[in-house]
Design a protein around this nucleic acid. Structure first.
Length: 551
RNA sequence: GGUCCCAUCGUCUAGUCAGGUCAGGACACCAGGUUUUCAUCCUGGGAACAGGGGUUCGAAUCCCCUUGGGAUCACCA
């Protein structure tokens, strides 16, 4: 018995799961759940040149991180399974061949022998004449003897679908509405390639049909392809699914958000800064040369991120993995991505997966494209982080640190580190970015002579630096190094040295121990650092400025 | 260029299908305030129906045109 609703997400594993794909997967998942249906995952790896197993596992991990599970498909950590596999298209070749024979037998498909070069010539010509290119059906005119001969010679050939005569074609789309074109707009497209693999059009129709998919939810770039699909469905006698085409997601500048953005950012930076060889310990000279040889040669994902890190630039977040490593919560990315094209109404913007499943429907999906606004995502992440209890925050931050900042995960007093950073972090990464001094050696701290440093240490009638010896003395005399003792020490220091102004005392200390004007609340910072390090850093700072400046 | 899709504050959007509240919210921005730094937090503010025609007593909402943006036109998916 077939289900009322079965959606599917069918990525081709050519890279990482990017946010556009993630949103599509999310809508597929949510719609299936909302209607007590099933969500199917299928891997479209018929492009042998571009697919890889590594990328496929990456997709599984990204999906899992987003809390998107699938009822049917490749088996992975509790997701997947089902009776209508295999769920890798590369393993379904025999099925496609059988189905292809059906079309060949009925005359709905035919062999074609033109080379790519010949076809490209035709395309150029069409473009020059300002008309759309259509395959001219030359191979359809071939005699059966010629075809037999070519076939036995092993002449490279493809199989084309013969578009039957008839009237206009209409796609019924639940979001876009009805879309109609003239049948003459569709030419005899290729359904089987020279390498013996089916094209996307063929495989997707066969699989969706056999796997009883009821709703096809995908990006709007597929809208024009859908006419081919309904033609194929007609030839096979397959009932068309409900179609839903989603608008695209763009960068703030209006360009399409794509994997190439990282490459573009790197190129721009390298060019603007006149860097003409790979920085040390980064990427190989060969990789660099190849990359610089052409704009079409993109750097590998790994190389790109290493180069970005070395150059000290943040590459634009495009993939789900990027947001994970930047320290966003998966629930927040889910929430924000959903909002790009769908809203529950009633001025509700922040919600969880349960709410989504309860309220999701296509009649509230927007047709127009959306720009990805990182600032809003960041604001949502802050809100979500602040709603966590300190225990929840600490354990989530710990998991993140284990993967992306092990030196912080190894911190003795991790829970204090977490609570000291909870309120002031917009992402997990924020916590470690303003606490680098915690893992640095006491002797490695340096003090740049920036404005805030000078202001706290060297400006004013009584300078911060001049108070340092007394502060050191006071700290040294403390028998216990706790929140309370440090706090009372600080307050008495403020009373005696600066008319009760805590800032006058706290800020010089902060700069001395952190090497800069930013750190967690001062008491937390000092407890975290320990008495010994605190005093050592104060001393070093005092010596450094006393010897280099006129005080 | 052909075909198709889209159009409300800077951004995401509510309102459009069933025309009738100074077009609502969020993010961002600006101005104040709280705070031992940064970040939070609080208060207030400016900010949009792309343009032009219709239909109607009445149009963001329905129709047409223009303009702008986008997708696609592969043996990639």
């Amino acid at each position: 018995m077939s289900l009322l609703v079965k959606t599917r997400f069918a990525p081709s594993p050519t890279g990482h799961l990017h946010v556009g794909g993630a949103r599509t997967a999310l809508y597929c998942w949510a719609f299936a759940k909302a209607n007590s249906g099933e969500f199917l995952l299928r891997i479209e790896d018929t492009d042998q040149k571009r697919s890889s197993d590594e990328a496929t596992v990456g997709f599984f991990n990204d999906l899992e991180w987003m809390n998107i599970d699938w009822d049917e498909g490749p088996e992975f950590k509790g997701s997947g399974g089902g009776d209508e596999g295999p769920y890798y298209q590369s393993q379904r070749l025999e099925i496609y061949k059988t189905k292809l024979q059906l079309l060949l037998d009925s005359g709905s498909a035919y062999f074609a022998f033109e080379t790519q070069e010949e076809l490209n010539e035709e395309r150029k010509k069409a473009r020059a004449e300002k008309r759309a290119y259509r395959y001219n059906r030359a191979s359809l005119e071939l005699s059966s003897e010629t075809i037999e001969q070519y076939l036995s010679e092993g002449k490279p050939r493809v199989v084309r679908f013969k578009v039957p005569d008839g009237g206009p074609l209409t796609v019924h789309d639940s979001v876009v509405g009805d879309v109609t074109i003239e049948r003459s707009e569709v030419d005899d497209f290729v359904i089987f390639k020279t390498d013996g693999y089916p094209t996307y059009h063929f495989a997707v129709v066969v699989d969706d049909g056999m796997m009883n998919v009821t709703h096809v939810i995908r990006g709007q770039e597929h809208l024009n392809n859908t006419f081919k699909h309904i033609l194929l469905q007609e030839a096979f006698g397959i009932k068309p699914p409900v179609y839903v085409h989603l608008s695209l997601i763009f960068n703030p500048d209006g360009s399409k958000m794509s994997k190439r953005d990282k490459d573009k950012t790197l190129r721009k930076f390298v060019k603007e800064n006149g860097i003409d060889s790979p920085p040390k310990g980064c990427i190989t000279q060969d990789a660099w040369d190849l990359w610089q040889s052409s704009k079409d040669k993109q750097l590998g994902t790994q190389d790109a991120s290493v180069l970005g890190k070395t150059l000290g630039i943040t590459l634009p977040e495009i993939n789900v993995e990027d947001f994970k490593s930047e320290g966003y919560m998966p629930e927040v990315l889910m929430n924000y991505l959903c909002l790009l094209g769908w809203s529950p109404g009633n001025d509700i913007e922040q919600f969880d997966a349960e709410f989504l499943v309860e309220h999701f429907s296509f009649d509230r999906v927007v047709k127009s494209p959306a720009k990805f606004d990182r600032a809003k995502l960041l604001a949502f992440n802050l809100d979500a982080l602040q709603k966590l209890t300190s225990e929840e925050f600490a354990s989530k931050l710990f998991v993140w640190c284990q993967e992306y900042a092990p030196e912080f995960a190894a911190l003795e007093n991790f829970s204090l580190f977490a609570s000291a950073n909870h309120e002031r972090s917009k992402t997990y990464k924020d916590a470690i970015m303003t606490s680098q001094f915690l893992i640095e050696d006491d002797e490695a701290i340096t003090w740049p002579e920036s404005k805030p440093v000078k202001k706290a240490l060297l400006k004013g009638e009584v300078t911060g630096l001049s108070r340092m010896p007394i502060i050191i003395e006071c700290f040294t005399s403390l028998e216990e190094w706790t929140n309370e003792t440090i706090d009372s020490c600080l307050h008495s220091l403020a009373e005696s040295l600066a008319d009760g102004s805590l800032g006058k005392v706290a800020q010089p200390i902060r700069i001395a121990v952190a090497g800069g004007p930013v750190s967690p609340p001062i008491v937390d910072t000092l407890v975290l650092l320990g008495k010994e390090s605190t005093i050592r850093r104060l001393e070093r700072c005092h010596e450094y400025f006393a010897s280099t400046c006129d005080v």
